[in-house]
Design a protein around this nucleic acid. Structure first.
Lengths: 226, 226, 226, 226
DNA sequence: TGCTAAGCGAGACGGTACGTCCCGTCTTAAT
DNA sequence: ATTAAGACGGGACGTACCGTCTCGCTTAGCA
């Protein structure tokens, strides 16, 4: 098994033997970020990272058991914190929070997340680490805002918070990733507005029509399942 | 330059030279799909594809100038058609259409799309091909539905169709990709409902509050820009 | 089977079909010699020959059934004739004849003969062609001289002409090929002198000694077998 | 630069890194000899050698920087030693020594030496290695014999040892290579006899004649240069 | 303070897959 | 009917990089 405890927790036992060089820890992470920025995930050769960090591959493998672990650790340095404001204005906060979200995504090359996630998908431990490092942090702020808005009574209290969070978050992710349409302040505001106010002219009428078409049983289940 | 026209249009010039073996075309695509299914995108070795197809690497490179072209061609075979119904019931059609969307995504290993898109991102020609082969087709059906619903008067006529399409489509993509939450009939229906009916208890009030907070000028611009 | 009748014999039947371009015949041979001189035998790519000759590989294969045939034909152009003089002076003629021999070898890159012969060795037909084109011609002149000298009574009449011819010819070949020692007028003269006059101080004594050592029977057989 | 020191001298510096597997050294050389025997030099595919040796191409390239180096190393295993006797009988020793020479050549496919030498010719380092591995060893024994015979007074003391060595050695090489005439005990003995006793009926007379023909100056130079 | 051994740095290893060159052959259109 | 020409199916090339193994040196903690 691997130790993988570069800058974190307490020693597992009395620390014996030569201690790990912190300089190498940092140099490798920095070099990894540099190579990622230049060559993307697919072009990331650990040999090149080692060369730039002035060290060797085994020193890297001793610290991170796989390329994925290394990249996760390196990228996590870029997504530290960012606490969005809590002004009490639901609309303002949501817009602001989503812009933080957008900024977080744009701090990472778009062609890094895809392959990294793909390679993490098979190993549960890695997938968990991925979610904890790169997925959850920028979502957390928005999630908190939604919760507060519900508590405040600004949003419907039958709200599926996760679903709404995903509808807003996924939009950002989607547009950044595929690049088929812009995503900026204006788009974020429009999306928030659409979702909050609804896009149907007369939703109850649409629902009634739907019930006629599909039969009461199924239409009913939709609303009691939720 | 590369010809890359195995299963499509007419010969561009008078056909000279030995014709390409259609058997190899098919065997390679089939083998590529098999290897993709077994090993994912990162594990797709052209040497292995060639071996399974009973041919050699040069024969593959003659047909598709890069691994990306090959994978695009192979995956496109899996996303042929699928025309969703047009019942006149906006709610039903949207739910049905999004389920087609979900199905399309699930026909492809989730760890294939990410790396493939990443590697296509740098070459405009490839990116265009990616969008045309794998991105647009499943969206098209939903886009048509939205347009019809607007025409029918079921949706607000100031609707940003692309934005709404992305909010629904991205949700599917996001959940399939990250796997942090399920996406099925129930979730689709709930998302459609939320978006159509709105999630705010009193949107006009929220908007008024927001205007107070940020000043009339900016809040105004949000609604005239759209 | 192959036709292989580029610039030689009469048509085998009434000449039907499009006639072969004599220009290509010549251009290919010339290009082949040029490439041979530049790149040696191993570096001779028929594609390059075709390119330089302004034609294509099939046109070459139509004329010569293999690379070996082509090279044989090309090199044969360089070893046409050269008739050495017949002055009646055995010593002079031999020296002169061997110098012709040396010159013949030096008209061809030394790293061509070896591989060519090796590749001809397996096919009897090719080996015969090789011997007839590149081996026999320069030897023939020396062989004739030896025969005349024997007839003239200048050489022992129990002479094994082939053996002597080989002893002189092989020397040239050997030194040119391996390059470990020079081969020019002086060396040729010294070799001829050694062979003609003998290198033993007292050959009969050596022979007598040998007979004592090995027993009469075997020593005898050596001289009656001949 | 390349190390290329599998079965020889001591490590040049403190040995760092994983040591090379001696098993692979041996397996590759053995496989190379087998493939050479079956397919000749031109048919020697390193991929096939690697396959038979149960290893891969990079492992071969790590040991021998080129196909030529590998073949030289492999063939050198076949020409180890062979010390011919020193009986004091010049005739017997020469015959015996030349037979060793013949045997040495016949331990190697005749279509290997030519191409190998050709490909070694351009790189001085390789040519030197070729001469040291495959050319010199079998000659050395004969050279020593000639030197002893001269010392013993059995051969003329104005003898050009190298020339005589080449005249005998080249004969063997020539006949083995071209295969136009046999080379065995009888031929060797006859060649030795011819060279030792001379083939002219009356050499002084021939020399006098030659001097008349070509002028004293040049004829003189031939005999004083020596 | 000196000894001992865990852990480190470094470098080379065995191996997979790459993308390319060139081979010799096949097929079509032109002569 | 046979050429000229282009593309094809394929074998092998030499290389980049992978993840691992082995070494000698460093450095703490124990004696």
């Amino acid at each position: 098994m691997h130790t993988d405890r570069p800058p974190n927790a307490a020693p597992p036992a009395a620390q014996v033997g030569r201690p790990r060089s912190r300089q190498i820890d940092a140099a490798v992470l920095e070099a990894a970020l540099a190579v990622l920025d230049e060559s993307g995930y697919a072009g990331l050769a650990l040999e090149e990272v080692a060369r730039r960090a002035g060290t060797t591959k085994p020193a890297i493998y001793r610290r991170w058991p796989s390329r994925q672990h290394l990249v996760l650790a390196a990228l996590a340095l870029r997504l530290d914190d960012a606490q969005p404001p809590d002004t009490g204005c639901t609309l303002c906060d949501l817009n602001e929070g989503l812009n933080v979200f957008v900024a977080a995504f744009q701090r990472i090359r778009p062609d890094v997340l895809g392959p990294l996630l793909a390679e993490c998908a098979s190993k549960p431990e890695l997938h968990k680490a991925f979610m904890a490092s790169l997925f959850e942090p920028p979502r957390r702020a928005v999630a908190q805002m939604l919760a507060k808005a519900v508590a405040r009574g600004d949003l419907r209290d039958d709200l599926d918070t996760d679903l709404v969070l995903d509808m807003l978050g996924s939009l950002v992710h989607y547009r950044v990733l595929f690049g088929h349409a812009p995503i900026g302040d204006a788009e974020v505001e429009r999306a928030v507005e659409s979702l909050l106010s609804g896009i149907a002219t007369d939703y109850p009428a649409l629902l009634a029509h739907s019930r006629q078409m599909t039969g009461a049983a199924r239409a009913h289940s939709v609303h009691t399942q939720a």
